[in-house]
Design a protein around this nucleic acid. Structure first.
Lengths: 214, 214
DNA sequence: CCATGCATTGAACATGTGTTTAGCATTTAA
DNA sequence: TTAAATGCTAAACACATGTTCAATGCATGG
């Protein structure tokens, strides 16, 4: 990265350093002096160019969002589906951008909402198409299923250290992802239960106390 | 809570206030003066009784862990399985303890490791029993499946706001949980795919490049 | 060459927050 | 009753960190 950083403008160097720090430490824990140090500039220059830490984050949000959406568009029509393989088969820089966006989702930033909506909408489309052509089971609530699958993907990619350790790894990484790939596909192919007793029980319970709308 | 707080020792009041603040805001964002204000004491007293913010957290960790494990033991042999129904059908105080432990998992505290290991071990036992008696499908990696199911539960209970909003809710809550219950059970009963093409492809891909890095 | 403007810096400033300290009040023990 | 210990507080302190400011260097145009 140092080889490329010398011919970038100071603004771009700061922005890239900020993206790395925000992705790794989160917005709050990341501090301007460390970002400035990574970018080989002073803390004052960061404010001079971006006005405030908040505005700097906004610029980073837009930048990463643009990169990810652009990459997804280029990969049409497959889009952003199968985030696991996507994540595994792409360069370090891409992983950083994904990590940044995952942090943004956790911290509920506006750019994250845009990103998540894109993912969920795309997921819902794929589900509806799969159900229509018979490759996927029908669902009582396709929208919820779309959210659920995105949630599972996000959760896997942000797996908390204690869970990674329960699997025998120091922390989340590509090896953990590979380890979980097969069980995940097995679950999505055969399910877990051999009968629908639990499902019927849940349906009954939800009908007993229908806290619902239409 | 105010009615009960008057006859608690100051230490207990501070500890309970800290649990609430840590659960709601996370350890870093929570500050001693706010905790002290909730407990109706001065900030200095918090340090006087607990030594430091870090030690205060340690006491809270142990306290919440003890309460949750005790509750799980009382609920034997069902233990901590089906966290959704457990979460929905229990009082506010219990939700706070769960929320505290979820925060501890995110922030990778020692107590969280204990809790997670309990959950995963218990989950693995249940899976092995279910597979043995034929109510669950065999798995190529039961341990990983146990981690996966715990991960899904944790992820659902800590659903980031953007995902809750993608479902049409302001933020995560009991209603979101009820909405996701059926799709989750459907997934765990029937799976998603109607054939095993994706599963076979994954098996093949993992055999082709079993240990690849770029 | 000078002047203007931009990039950049180091130091100072402001604020939030964990912690320390000195002191006060109340209880307890001799 | 006095003295020590305990519970508790307000203020001060230390430090991290976002931000401001004055000054310096350096380019470009007149």
């Amino acid at each position: 990265m140092c080889s490329a950083s010398s011919d970038l403008t100071a603004q771009a160097k700061i922005r890239n350093a900020a993206i790395a720090h925000f992705a790794q430490d989160g917005f709050q824990k990341a501090n301007l002096r460390a970002i400035a140090a990574t970018a080989r500039v002073s803390a004052g220059l960061v404010i001079h160019h971006f006005g405030s830490k908040e505005k700097l984050r906004s610029v980073c949000d837009d930048h990463v969002l643009r990169l990810l959406v652009q990459r997804a568009d280029e990969a049409r029509p497959s889009g952003m589906q199968d985030p696991f393989r996507e994540y595994l088969s792409n360069p370090e820089e891409y992983r950083l951008q994904v990590q940044y966006m995952l942090r943004a989702i956790e911290e509920d930033m506006p750019a994250a909402a845009t990103f998540v909506n894109t993912l969920v909408d795309e997921s819902e489309e794929i589900l509806r198409a799969g159900i229509a052509d018979g490759t996927m089971h029908p669902s009582s609530d396709v929208r919820a299923l779309a959210v659920l699958s995105v949630l599972h993907s996000v959760a896997t990619l942000t797996m908390p250290p204690p869970l990674a350790r329960a699997l025998g790894y120091e922390r989340f990484g590509p090896d953990v992802l590979r380890r979980l790939a097969l069980p995940t596909l097995e679950l999505y192919t055969h399910g877990l239960f051999t009968d629908d007793a639990a499902l019927k029980a849940a349906r009954a319970a939800l009908n007993d106390s229908p806290q619902e709308e239409d």
